Computed example of a mutant assay.
Amino acid sequence: MRINRIVPRSALAGLAVLAGLALFGGAGTAAADTPSPSSSSSAGGSDAPSQAGTAFRTATAARQGQHATASASTGDYLYWVFPADAGQSATVDATVKLPEASARHGASTWQLDVYDGLRRRQSCQYGSQTRVAAADAESVTMTCHLRTVRSWAEPWANDPLPGSYYIRLTVLDLPQEDLGLPVRAEVVATSSGSGGAHAVDGSLASPLTAVTAPDASSATPAPSGTSDTAGAATPAGTAAGPEDGWSSGWWSDRWIWTVGGGILGALAGVAGYSMARGPGRLSYRRPPGV
């Protein structure tokens, strides 16, 4: 007896679909890790803030990707506020241009802090949050990479949540004679999508703190050369929401893996059934002499 079995073409088709979905899933993950369009669309825009607040209530609003600048005096507390939505991993970079070395009397220590909408200080995953500038240094740069913003968290947790995030830049230690010297600060907040690996169930009913849109019609420009933003074009202490709305990034690579897994499971079932059942017919040859 000889049984002729033919490997079904559906199995080969299933392998091809598997390879295609693997490539598609990889592309989806890579796309989720690329910076969001808002991170670079307005980096060089003329509407970037040129002042800074001196407290949480007077923080200057800035969008992600905007290079906010401010002229201030050494020893001032400088505040900015920007929005961060669920699924974003924000990075804040700050640069301080120091006075002439001939006018300074020693090294200085600068620090960059980031607070959420509830004014809870957020820890940095990595980056140089505190830097020491030598007596002859021209500038000092600090970086803080925050944890991924979550859409929901337990009340006892200190997880980053969607809403306003405050940037505070100040000097911690310097010679007494250097207080009041003029400095030039620049900060920029950018973010990248973290993908479905950091997604959680649940969502907030509203972002942290009151978030309003800019209202230039009722604003009075502040005097040039000052760091106070009481009359800035954007309401002080609030951040304009994302251009596409809060929690609009509902898409993640979890959808790709869920749908792809379902398709692969169905194809595997069909291919396994076809291979176990065979072509559907058996051929029998009578032995010679029988």
Rank of each mutant, 00 (worst) to 15 (best):
S36I: 10
S36V: 10
S36P: 08
P37W: 05
P37C: 06
S38N: 11
S39W: 02
S39Y: 03
G45V: 04
G45C: 11
S46A: 14
D47N: 12
D47Q: 11
D47G: 05
A48I: 03
A52Q: 05
A52R: 02
T54H: 07
T54N: 15
A55C: 08
R57E: 14
A59C: 10
T60L: 08
A62T: 10
A62I: 14
R63D: 11
Q64G: 12
H67R: 15
T69C: 05
A70H: 00
S71W: 01
S73H: 12
G75P: 09
L78R: 01
Y79K: 02
V81D: 01
V81Y: 01
V81T: 14
P83C: 09
A84S: 14
A84C: 07
G87P: 01
G87C: 09
Q88G: 04
Q88Y: 05
S89H: 08
A90K: 00
D93T: 14
A94Y: 00
T95M: 10
V96M: 09
V96S: 02
K97P: 00
L98T: 01
A101I: 07
S102T: 13
A103N: 08
R104S: 08
H105K: 12
G106R: 09
A107D: 11
Q111E: 14
Q111F: 04
L112D: 01
D113R: 14
D116F: 02
L118G: 09
R120L: 10
R120N: 14
R121H: 12
Q122V: 07
Q122A: 08
C124Q: 04
C124T: 06
Y126L: 10
G127W: 04
S128Y: 07
T130E: 13
V132S: 13
A133R: 00
A133V: 08
A134Q: 15
A134G: 15
A135F: 04
E138F: 03
E138V: 10
E138P: 00
V140S: 02
V140E: 01
T141H: 14
M142V: 06
T143D: 13
C144W: 05
C144D: 09
R147F: 11
V149L: 06
V149C: 05
R150L: 14
R150I: 01
